[in-house]
């Protein structure tokens, strides 16, 4: 692959990760968001694959396989199971969709303006894309804050996790396979725990949001 086309394909894949995060903020149906998350997993796997091919690192290519399997297949499947009925939607977000998109733009700008030092630190072409990872991270955090349904909380957490993985790939040209495997298993465990929590919440309170937990305060 020629250098120029490698750079642009990598930029495209990284951009796809960010677009998926914005889409997660835009969509309100659970089903759609989970689909977006799966797409983001695919894009992340693509980033890892490209980097792996570029530096001829088979471990990184294997990592790409793990990422796709876990983040594009296993976790979305689990989430779909949590979501239960097919037409569940986020009807009363804490911050409505247009405002969320404006906030997303502001957060992206902030990410780009504050990470210039990091960019300077990493001289490779991939390093220039690090701000995208930070933007994704902030967007994921924003999903956590702005959405009520437990499923969306999980989505937000996974967005943050994907962003962290993306930043790790871009800065270090691939974390060791073993570490990536461990992190992925942690995330899987987190999702399972949250699944249990969400299903218990639904069993106890019906279809309510997390703020029902406010009653538990002293």
């Amino acid at each position: 692959m020629r250098a120029g086309s490698y750079d642009s394909v990598l930029a495209l894949a990284v951009g796809a990760v960010l677009v998926c995060a914005v889409a997660a903020l835009w969509l309100s149906s659970v089903r759609g968001v989970v689909r977006v998350l799966a797409a983001q997993g695919l894009a992340l796997g693509l980033v890892a694959l490209l980097l792996g091919l570029h530096v001829h690192d088979t471990a990184l290519v294997a990592t790409a396989g793990v990422v796709v399997g876990l983040k594009a297949v296993v976790i979305p499947t689990l989430l779909r199971r949590v979501a239960g009925e097919t037409h569940s939607r986020e009807t009363r977000p804490l911050v409505n969709v247009p405002a969320s998109l404006v906030a997303a733009a502001a957060l992206s700008l902030l990410a780009f303006s504050t990470t210039r030092d990091v960019v300077r630190l990493v001289p490779t072409g991939a390093g220039k894309l690090v701000p995208v990872g930070f933007a994704t991270l902030l967007l994921g955090f924003f999903v956590l804050v702005a959405r009520r349904k437990p499923v969306f909380q999980m989505v937000g957490l996974l967005l943050v996790d994907n962003a962290v993985a993306l930043i790790a790939f871009l800065i270090t040209a691939g974390v060791p396979f073993l570490i990536e495997l461990g992190v992925s298993l942690d995330v899987l465990l987190g999702v399972v725990v949250l699944m249990v929590l969400a299903s218990r919440l639904r069993a106890d309170y019906g279809e309510v949001d997390l703020d029902a937990l406010q009653e538990l305060r002293d």
Partner: peptide, 25 residues
């Protein structure tokens, strides 16, 4: 400030993160 809402605590986290980013960046 501590009303028990999970979202509020998450928002505190986000704001803290942003402040750190702005200060450090």
């Amino acid at each position: 400030a501590q009303n028990g809402s999970v979202h509020r605590y998450l928002a505190f986290g986000l704001v803290a993160l942003l402040v750190v980013l702005v200060v450090v960046g």
